[in-house]
Design a protein around this nucleic acid. Structure first.
Lengths: 109, 109
DNA sequence: TCGATATTTCCAGAATTATCGAATCATAGG
DNA sequence: CCTATGATTCGATAATTCTGGAAATATCGA
């Protein structure tokens, strides 16, 4: 994930209303993921539009797909998101002022 | 930062080659920030193009500007980036698989 | 007040991205 | 082999974003 180009792809993939909602939905769905049809229903979106966004996110490396019979199952790639957050933490923060609050978050949880 | 719309604005602001470089430059420059002219020179970019990107990032809340004589000084808003990372950590990760590595990062540092 | 400097705003054109119906592809089951 | 189902790809259009020169704005110093 370290290269800036990949980071930009990931950021761009998430920087869209439908795709951010899509990713959050997949995160909630866990490793098992969800078939495209169910996602389309949950997000109330035409199949072809959803397919466009799914392809976009897969290209960016944020989600993975597997086939299960006629269904294509999509699942969040947690490692990719982890890498993105690591990049932002390491390259776009100023030490204490940015890393600390996350540490507090962990203690609070 | 919590609202999804604001998060999308911040992600979109960072999801662009020149703006990501710009933000990283400002992060490195610390609280003191940098005048627009210096940024334009460092990023080798026409003044009007840079101005477009600076405005974009300021609208997204990621940078702040202050005037100093004829110069407009831009500086990274660390709290905003912190909020963005917090949102991603809380909403786009699956507990252990995403939060843990960041914890390791802290221990290693 | 005048001229120089720092930067933005305006504008038009180029490039990219999003939308979604219709056509197509892949698989399952009879 | 045929049909139904789940999903993608195609294609055309609409909308948004990026680019950079020229003009306008703000400030400083003499």
């Amino acid at each position: 994930m370290s290269s800036a180009a990949k980071v930009i792809d990931a950021l761009a993939a998430l920087a869209q209303e439908h795709r951010l909602a899509l990713f959050r939905l997949l995160v909630q769905s866990g490793e098992a993921g969800l078939p495209a049809g169910v996602i389309a229903e949950r997000l109330a979106m035409p199949a072809s539009s959803l397919s466009f966004h799914l392809a976009h996110m897969e290209r960016a490396g944020l989600i993975r797909r597997t086939r299960h019979g006629r269904s294509l199952i999509y699942a969040a790639d947690y490692a990719a998101m982890n890498g993105l957050i690591a990049y932002l933490t390491e390259n776009c923060c100023a030490g204490a002022s940015c890393v600390q609050p996350i540490a507090e978050e962990r203690n609070a949880a």
